[in-house]
Design a protein around this nucleic acid. Structure first.
Lengths: 381, 381
DNA sequence: CTGAAAGCGCTTACAG
DNA sequence: CTGAAAGCGCTTACAG
């Protein structure tokens, strides 16, 4: 492995000059540059990233922190990752997936040593210790997801609030009035405070109340069995439920199977809509699932842009972007079944839910529908 | 961010002594160590990984190379990764997911700079340019998967040959004689030469011929639609097919749906067995899928052990490990339907397949059934 | 346009 | 047991 000094010797120039041509940091005469390039070729020179990092304090490597706790979002995590990788690469950066405990315990050593220039977070909780730590360490970061208080937080996120509203709009227009939300209960786990779940539940409770709809929140275990059990319990708690939102791809199959076993046809008796899912996932069901499609790729790209924009100082303002999932209607949703007696407005209490969630809307937020991402706050190289 | 020198000053010792206590590389008297620890606490010292890497030529970071080409194996890739992360962590290493083109183009800069001590490969092809490159660069590596020639190749892999044999054993015992293999055709893609597909096809062709079974290889597009189409074509090519092996989770749903639409009941008319899949995946079907379960976690762990063993010089020999998938029978497989006339042995040619594959069995290989991995050729930290 | 030199923050023989 | 010092391979003001 040839060093820069060896290249310099062979080209008959100083090591500084080699550095200039390698990095393009200063003008070098064409003849000199030519000699240097020749020497590099001949010696098979490759820049030592570690030495460069130590001297320059930057590596052009950024990391996507990947929570090692038994992970939800398996699918979209990979989509975030791949999209962010692509965008980072276009902007001249490498992106690696860095496994990290939800507590952020492994963060210190590796980030503060200067191995990476910045960090992207995912699976953000309402109060997230990792963000506290990153701020302490002064490490630039961008979040896919957001904490309760978004002051000074650079984030891109799904607009869960709006996604729930649009889901209810759609189904209410089809005549439904008894709603269920099937979702995992994370509050006793290490992922307690996971923002997507809490925001979705809070909006569901608030909005169904405002719309004077009957609503039931049904917690649901992981896996097919969990979905089946959820179907059973939900129908026990509200036998009249006709519209179910579910935010847990792993359990959707079980939910549908459970509903059928209990004599419910989909969508004739019950409509099912999957939140923050994907077209591909929807196609794996029978009947094909109507889904609110997660904007995973956009979020991954925007997060990379936002972080790199900070690193390069090309960012006018802290990015705050919310993107609503896009409705894709398939076969699992349809008109509400006609009731014998038009049962009047229900007043039954919604299911208990963790203390009402106030979300600080401190900073102005740009809400947008899946727009192209290239305009997003960084000017790029 | 305090430096080691600052810690040394505060503790009234030399920087060398601080390094010794930080790394435990030399004996230091308890009193001195105590003073150093105190100073580190007070200053909030964290070792600079980059400087350490430059001076010591090692980072204790290893990378799992993740092919950025539109990726198959989404599920098991994450399982490899998480398992390898866990095992590496137990052995004192960090593991990151490093996106890389199948060509290995990005490899040079980042590996040769000493950023990582070694590399784990996955999705290995019969002739893999990345392995050539890693050998050139002298970077230690371990492969999940294997090339055609396994001489001097440290690898752990699924035993595709044996997995196919055991699948055929099982189904033949149930009376089946007309087999289909549904698999993706990668030969025109960047993943051409992908070993699992070629080994599986080759074994399927060879073994069904030896067993005097009728066999058809049906290529299949990605996705649900691809699976449906494959069902149609396969039934056209062999209307008598009663046993189907499929190695493509994304298309399994479509295959089953397609079979049903063509009037085939599962498993009464046709048995379907999914290869290199998972229990969870199997549970997402109706009827529940019989699967050959991929030993993903074992492979991830063993790969990490194998690489770290090389790095630490604790490896007696190049690891060569093959693990057969484990059969989990569910509802999608059953006895072959009884034929009106016991149609005699078929001699129809199997579907065309890429030139017969000779696999160099150069090195002795340890074949094993999903045994605990902790005994695997490294003595641990 | 080019170079000499200090410095990035560690590790590690080598002495004592 | 402890320290002085060279060195890892670059980058970057500063001079010229």
């Amino acid at each position: 492995m040839a060093t820069m000094q060896q290249v310099a010797d062979r080209a008959g120039v100083s090591i500084a000059t080699v550095s200039f041509v390698v990095n393009g940091t200063k003008r070098v005469s064409p003849q000199t540059a030519e000699r240097v390039h020749k020497a590099m070729k001949e010696l098979g020179f490759r820049n030592n990233v570690v030495a460069r990092a130590l001297a320059s304090r930057r590596t052009r490597i950024i990391a996507l922190l990947f929570p090692t706790a038994e992970n939800r979002m398996r699918g979209s995590a990979l989509e975030f990752f791949m999209a962010a990788v692509d965008r980072a690469s276009e902007l001249g950066y490498h992106l690696v997936l860095w496994p990290d405990a939800p507590s952020g315990d492994d963060l210190d050593d590796l980030i503060s040593g200067g191995l990476v220039d910045g960090v992207i977070l995912m699976e953000v909780r309402m109060e997230d210790p990792r963000i506290v730590k990153l701020r302490e360490l002064g490490v630039p970061f961008a979040a896919i997801g957001r904490t309760r208080d978004t002051t000074d937080l650079p984030f891109v996120d799904m607009d869960f609030e709006n996604t729930v509203e649009e889901s209810l709009d759609y189904l209410q227009r089809l005549g439904h009035s008894h709603f269920g939300l099937v979702i995992e209960d994370l509050e006793k786990t290490v992922m307690a405070g996971y923002a997507p779940h809490l925001r979705t539940q809070a909006t569901f409770v608030e909005s169904t109340r405002r719309r004077r709809l009957t609503s039931t929140i049904q917690y649901c275990g992981y896996s097919t069995a969990g979905g089946r059990e959820a179907a059973k319990q939900l129908l026990e708690r509200d036998p009249d439920v006709t519209a179910i939102l579910i935010m847990k791809d792993e359990s959707t199959f079980g939910l549908m199977a459970g509903l059928r076993e209990l004599g419910k046809r989909i969508p004739e008796d019950v409509s099912v809509l999957s939140l923050a899912s994907s077209s591909a996932e929807g196609a794996h069901h029978e009947p094909a699932m109507s889904v609110m499609v997660s904007p995973s790729r956009e979020l991954g790209q925007l997060a990379a842009e936002s972080l790199i924009g900070q690193l390069e100082g090309t960012l006018a303002e802290m990015p705050h972007v919310l993107i609503t999932c896009k409705l894709e209607v398939a076969e699992s949703t349809g008109a509400a079944p006609v009731r014998e007696e038009a049962s009047s407005v229900l007043l039954s209490d919604p299911a208990p839910v963790a203390a009402p969630i106030e979300v600080a809307a401190s900073a102005p937020v740009r809400r947008r529908r899946r727009t192209p991402s290239t305009t997003a706050g960084t000017t790029g190289p």
